[in-house]
Write a protein that binds this DNA or RNA. Structure first.
Length: 355
DNA sequence: AACGCGTGGAT
DNA sequence: TATCCAAGCGT
């Protein structure tokens, strides 16, 4: 006799047939699909919206079409490709994983849960996505989309609202086949229908199963997170231009930990006094210009950034600092990228005025 | 277990 | 403008 678990079976069936007509089928990581592409896309998509990832993913796959090409890359090359994408530790973890795939897996992506979740940067949800999407195996995911769908579907509130419980529920609704499509479909439901604000419940394949809809709770589920305090922070940057070549700038590589780890940075200070000391101590002399302040928002900080631009009048060498060409592609943070763009405009304007 | 880690889109 | 938060992970 069939139909022991009618709700569960019909639930996945509804999601799957909805996906056929309404899901996203043309994302670049869905074309000529393989574990490598699923892995890279899943890492890029961590806490990052699809539209943001698209250009980065295309460039990444063009430069590194397979594991072997990636395993031969330097960390700095991968970070350079990651410039502007954020959460740069992900690039470092991709590099580390590529080395592991080279050393231990003959450049083949592993196929079982234990091996996959032990790779750097791959947690439970990313492992579940790779196992289901790339290998069609029956593993749950719990990304932001699926989390929201499940919370609404089962009307999760209060003490029930914890990851352990949500993982159990995510696992409980898995079908026994088509797990690749099911993972995609659940994310599409969350992303396209079961949105945070104004979900289009009338278009939802799960409308008849949804407890929140039934109880008119879709506005208060999922529960809001308590907002965290955003502190203000001041940053002073020194943009030191070589005394001969306008496009050469003094830079230093960031530490291996902390904000913008391993990226190239300008001499950076939290106090104006520290900047002054640096200038005096290294006998930095030249024409000074102050750029207009700009702000840059991080999750916990609102940065107020001042840039002091100095065109050197003499040759300068400082230990641990390197001269970098602003026209070369190097791994830098967004604020440095913004600063360089401003400088490039200035240089081009100056050249224009000469003519 | 709370927090650090980036950036951009939506409202 | 301010706020929330997205295909989360590591510690």
């Amino acid at each position: 006799m069939n139909g022991k678990e009618p709700n569960k079976g019909s639930l996945s069936k509804k999601v799957l047939s909805w996906h056929k007509l309404n899901g996203r089928h043309n994302l670049p990581w869905q074309k000529n699909i393989n574990p490598y592409k699923v892995w890279i896309s899943e890492i890029m998509l961590q806490q990052t919206q699809v539209s943001t990832v698209l250009p980065y993913f295309k460039l990444f796959i063009k430069k590194y079409p397979n594991i072997k090409s990636l395993a031969n890359a330097k960390l700095e090359d991968i970070l350079e490709l990651w410039t502007g994408l954020g959460y740069y530790r992900r690039a470092e973890n991709i590099y580390k994983t590529a080395q592991i795939l080279k050393e231990n897996y003959q450049f083949k992506f592993p196929k079982n849960y234990e091996d996959i979740i032990n790779l750097p940067g791959i947690g439970k949800s990313t492992a579940g996505a790779i196992l289901s999407i790339a290998y069609k195996k029956k593993y749950p995911i719990l990304d932001g989309n699926v989390k929201r769908v499940i919370k609404r579907l089962f009307a999760i509130q209060g003490s029930a609202n914890n990851d352990s419980n949500l993982w159990t529920l995510s696992e409980s609704i898995l079908p026994n086949k088509n797990n690749d499509i099911f993972s995609q479909a659940m994310m599409d439901v969350g992303s396209l229908v079961c949105t945070i604000n104004n979900p289009t419940c009338s278009m939802c394949p799960l409308i008849k199963d949804c407890k929140s809809y039934k109880l008119k709770l879709t506005k208060i589920i999922p529960e809001k997170k308590k907002s965290n305090l955003i502190k203000k922070k001041k940053i002073y940057l020194l943009l030191i231009q070589d005394y001969k070549k306008d496009n050469f700038i003094l830079m230093k590589k960031n530490n291996k930990e902390g904000l913008w780890a391993n990226l190239w940075n300008l001499p950076s200070f939290s106090l104006k006094k520290e900047l002054n000391n640096f200038v005096l101590k290294n006998k930095i002399k030249g024409k000074v210009k102050v750029f207009k302040n700009f702000s840059h928002n991080l999750t916990h900080y609102k940065l107020d950034i001042s840039v002091f631009h100095i065109k050197l009048s003499n040759k300068l060498i400082i230990k641990n600092y390197n001269w970098k060409n602003i026209y070369d592609k190097i791994a830098i943070s967004k604020p440095i990228l913004i600063t360089f763009e401003k400088l490039i405009k200035e240089i081009e304007n100056a050249n224009g005025n000469v003519r």
